[in-house]
């Protein structure tokens, strides 16, 4: 595998750590909601760990990301602490959006160069394009990266963004997390050509397809795209093929997904697979990986406890923050 030459063993263990942190956060969140301790609804990203982590890991802190609702790993890796994210999910005053926005929405923080998710699909794309254009304008060697779904790729703005990004040679990376479904609608009911990366060609930009359950493959694709973009060679469309392993949102049992499909993808689970790879390639032994897991468990438990103990917003503040400069 050529990709491991890009990564030191230390980095590979970091990738594993971030994926596991994302997975355990996600499982903890799902349990919280099952126990009725959640507020409103939420989205699990189970199965998307390799994409959000691999992509975010390939960028520098000065690069901008605009994640979507399956990109918990990217938010965490880019510096939103698990406690702040739990705080957001639970509507706490010290959550990322200060109780303003729900679940994984509203988790923007420009100190970390994160643009918060826009619910209306796929409006994060042209916004990320604008961030990329600002880098050209100021002649900065930065890139903007945004994530979107297979479903959102049917909207006009997806095409408008690719066309403009290519036309303007923008340092933009668009990752389509093709997880086979948009809510209940399978890919074949959304489009005739299920290979979304092929669309890049007609806009005259680079397009690649990667195994979205292979964190190093995602890393390598984003690393290459970022290098190209910084070198002035313009945007890249990356299609990461994966599977949404739970329902669309927490209330959705996803009865419409065939069991065999889930079984197939369970066998390709990105976290378990990477763990095995690290063992097979002698990057770490069982003890070291178990230690990482224990560290993650403690970190997540502490974060949740901290968020649950933190206050809800004061209703007297409800009108604060609508306008900048007040």
């Amino acid at each position: 595998m050529t990709t491991s030459r890009l990564l030191t063993n230390q980095q590979r263990l970091e990738l594993f750590y971030w994926m596991l942190l994302t997975r355990i956060f996600d499982e903890t969140m799902v349990n919280l909601w099952k126990q009725g301790r959640g507020v409103g609804g939420t989205f699990s990203q189970r199965g998307h760990e390799a994409i959000s982590v691999g992509a975010a890991y390939a960028l520098g802190p000065e690069d901008v990301i605009a994640p979507m609702h399956r990109d918990l790993g990217a938010y965490l890796l880019r510096g939103l602490t698990p406690a702040r994210v739990f705080g957001n999910l639970l509507g706490r005053a010290d959550g990322v959006s200060r109780g303003r926005d729900a679940n994984l929405h509203g988790m923007g923080d420009l100190r970390h160069n994160i643009i918060g998710f826009i619910s209306h699909l796929p409006h994060s794309l042209p916004v990320a394009l604008g961030a990329a254009m600002s880098f050209i304008y100021r002649n900065e060697p930065r890139v903007a990266l945004t994530f979107t779904g297979d479903g959102a790729s049917s909207a006009g703005l997806f095409h408008e963004t690719l066309n403009m990004a290519s036309l303007w040679n923008a340092p933009l990376i668009v990752i389509v997390e093709n997880n086979q479904y948009a809510y209940s609608t399978p890919l074949h009911q959304q489009m005739k050509v299920p290979d979304i990366a092929r669309r890049a060609e007609i806009y005259g930009m680079a397009g690649v397809t990667v195994d979205g359950n292979d964190v190093e493959a995602v890393y390598a694709a984003v690393h290459a795209a970022a290098t190209r973009a910084r070198g002035g060679s313009g945007p890249t469309l990356i299609e990461a093929k994966t599977m949404r392993m739970l329902g669309h949102a927490i209330h959705d049992g996803a009865e419409y997904v065939p069991k065999e499909l889930l079984e197939y993808w369970e066998g390709r689970d990105p976290v378990k697979r990477y763990r095995q790879k690290l063992l097979d390639e002698g990057v770490a032994d069982e003890t070291e990986l178990t230690e990482i897991a224990q560290r993650v468990e403690v970190e997540i438990a502490d974060a949740l406890a901290q968020a649950e103990a933190s206050p809800l917003p004061d209703p007297a503040t409800v009108e604060q923050g609508v306008y900048a400069g007040e």
Binding site: R92, A93, S97, G99, R100, L312, P313, P315, V318
Partner: peptide, 16 residues
């Protein structure tokens, strides 16, 4: 409703 986006957190939405 108030002249704000509709807030999520229960005490804020109830105030809204």
């Amino acid at each position: 409703g108030l002249d704000t986006p509709i807030p999520f957190s229960p005490p804020l939405e109830d105030a809204y």
